[in-house]
Simulated scan of single mutants.
Amino acid sequence: MAEPYGESPLASHADVLTDSSVPGDLRLSEVSFTAQVTLRVDPKSPAAERIGTALGTMLPNQAGQVSRTERLLVAWLGPDEWLLVGPEGEADRIQATVAEALGDEHGAVVDVSAHRTIIEVAGPKAPELLAKGCALDLHRRSFGPDRCAQTLLARTGVVLLCRDTEPPNYWIFVRASFARYLADWLRDAAAEYHQNR
Rank of each mutant, 00 (worst) to 15 (best):
G107T: 10
D188P: 00
V74Q: 07
T156W: 00
Q62F: 10
I172K: 04
E7H: 06
G52F: 08
W185L: 01
V16H: 06
G107F: 01
A54W: 07
S12A: 14
A14D: 14
L73P: 00
Y193Q: 06
N61W: 00
F178S: 09
T18E: 15
T117Y: 01
L138G: 04
G64P: 03
L39Y: 11
P23H: 09
Q95D: 10
T156Y: 04
V16T: 14
P9N: 11
R141K: 12
F143W: 00
E81I: 06
Q65H: 09
T117H: 02
P127W: 03
T69Q: 07
G52T: 00
S45G: 09
W76G: 03
A96C: 08
V159T: 13
S177E: 13
H106N: 14
F143S: 03
K125R: 12
I51F: 11
M58H: 11
G107D: 05
L77Q: 14
A35W: 09
T97V: 01
V41T: 11
L160W: 03
P145T: 04
E120D: 14
D19A: 13
L26I: 10
L161Y: 11
S32K: 02
L83D: 12
K132H: 08
S142I: 05
A54M: 09
M1H: 02
L136I: 10
T53E: 14
K44F: 11
A63P: 04
P127F: 08
P4W: 02
A11Q: 10
A114V: 13
L84W: 05
R93L: 15
E3H: 01
S8L: 07
E90S: 15
R187I: 04
S32E: 09
Y181C: 00
L136M: 11
T97W: 05
L129D: 08
G52H: 04
A35V: 13
A176P: 02
K132M: 05
R155V: 04
